[in-house]
Design a protein around this nucleic acid. Structure first.
Lengths: 291, 291
DNA sequence: CAAAAGCTTCCGATATGCGGAATAGATGGG
DNA sequence: CCCATCTATTCCGCATATCGGAAGCTTTTG
């Protein structure tokens, strides 16, 4: 299953090197350390041993050893003393909990995702733009028994591939959209729309309808609908997306789903950039710690 | 409100330096880079400028600049071009989403936390042990209007301070517990139980009752109840904890709350370490990406 | 029990990261 | 409008932290 995921989500690592492969990015120890963290993230089910890392990143064992030692001290990584396997450490939680893109988008959307997944019974994704990719910021799985397990939190898709990213692209600033199209067209080899004219037509259509829905043919039998989440200027800050089997998005049900998505998206927009930028979280009265 | 949080949660940085202060930890650039990330996490509401970081960590601007450049390239940090303020980057999501302590504890507990916060109407915390501290792995806020805003995800408390960590301590291996007591007693200056004999009595009591509940006097008017989450061997892997105002944990309601917590804790235990270690997540059938 | 593979420590050479100083840019006040 | 001040960025020589080979030590494998 992991293989499928990788394929659909474009690896996640090959940002610039393209053909190169799996070198440990740059040469600074900070970069190397982060590369190790990334590797640990990708092998988290099982954990990774020192030599695994050493080989995968093309670093000598002593180097990896020293970096890991630091990472463990800093609690960014952990060792299972018994198996000598390394995994990600607990302090990453503390960081990621604060790493909201525009403010607390994720927190704001969390209850809405839950509502949506309960109502629509399918898995809901929250995507945001990051450079020339869309990133899965959060997701909530619905009870429907056939579920999509690609699109892990943190996973990246090339902007333009998939309904969610189309929804985002359609509501970018015009110049930004041009930039993205220029940059991404060459990257969309095999997946997504590779014909520029067709891509522009699609984007116009999405912009017109206010939602994106079409089987991109990524995986036969699966379809998706997505609506943008707009800021006050009408530009996309994110997208809400549903992925499910095509049968569940037929002519009858699709308009209903779109309608619900649009309503929730509007609810999110209303909470974004509130007029008072200070009190973004609900009013705190008193604190007691984890009791 | 941030000040309160810091006070109650023991800063989060002063691991060994004690009196030292806010130096950027060790001297490796990896450590410095991570220190920057930590700083960004703590100032995420507003973001931090280069000189802020420079001053706070006692690093020269060029150094900070170079490190930040790397972090931004690696998407661990982001710059708001307009305000020149730095915040945490989106790739931390990808890391943290995988950084589950024992496997997917957090994912497993998420729905349970939600249920609990809805049922009990108060904020529920999920705590795990990390070294000599307890760490807030997740939390779910209940609708009750007086809420606790300390205990951010990723926040740390000295093991022994608060009901959640007592619940964990009471169900550790005996040797480990001794080690924790030895190490933590000196750290519990002013907060928590500073008398060893009393601490041991309390722990025994918690072990006996199967839950911890007593106002530690951390914040007047606030109380908490916590139950351990046990693994197959009966040792604590985590704790579920409710924090609320003391009135809501009176003699009448307390047993009810404890009962509910215990039931949910047992439900979690059942899902931990399943006999088949492979299929930890619910069965995936097909993937479609974020559609 | 021997052999192999993995982990850890040591240490010298060198590349890497550091910070002072100078430049460029932004901000605000006179 | 221009100057003063603060901040961000670039440059460069020095020093040091980092690297990796080699060797000891531990664990796994056959």
């Amino acid at each position: 299953m992991s293989a499928d995921s990788r394929e659909a989500l474009s690896g996640g690592d090959e940002t610039k090197q393209g053909a190169g492969g799996d070198e440990a990015g740059g040469k600074s120890s900070l970069q190397r350390g982060l590369a190790i963290l990334r590797l640990l993230a990708s092998s988290n089910e099982t954990g990774a041993r020192l030599t695994d890392i050493s080989r995968a990143l093309d670093l000598t064992p002593p180097t990896v050893h020293r970096l890991l030692k630091i990472l463990v001290e800093e609690r960014m990584a952990e060792v299972d003393k018994a198996t000598k396997r390394y995994r990600l450490g607990i302090d990453l939680f503390g960081l990621a909990a604060q790493a909201g893109n525009p403010n607390n988008l994720r927190d704001i959307c969390r209850p809405i995702l839950l509502r949506l997944s309960a109502t629509l019974r399918d898995t809901i994704f929250l995507l945001v733009r990051s450079g020339f990719d869309a990133v899965c910021l959060d997701r909530s799985e619905g009870p429907f028994p056939i579920r999509s397990f690609t699109g892990d939190i943190g996973g990246r898709v090339t902007l333009g591939v998939g309904q969610g990213s189309l929804a985002i692209m359609a509501f970018l600033h015009a110049e930004e959209r041009e930039e993205v199209i220029r940059f991404n067209l060459p990257r969309m080899q095999g997946v997504g729309i590779i014909d520029e004219v067709y891509l522009r037509t699609e984007i116009a259509r999405v912009r017109d309808l206010g939602y994106a829905s079409r089987s991109t043919g990524l995986l036969p039998g699966m379809s998706g609908v997505a609506v943008p989440v707009l800021d006050r200027d009408g530009h996309a800050v994110a997208a809400l997306s549903v992925g499910t089997i095509s049968e569940r998005l037929n002519e009858e049900r699709l308009p209903v789903v779109v309608d619900i998505l649009k309503r929730e998206s509007a609810a999110i927009s209303r909470q974004l950039n509130p007029f008072d930028p200070v009190l973004r979280r609900p009013a705190a009265i008193l604190g007691g710690g984890p009791a």
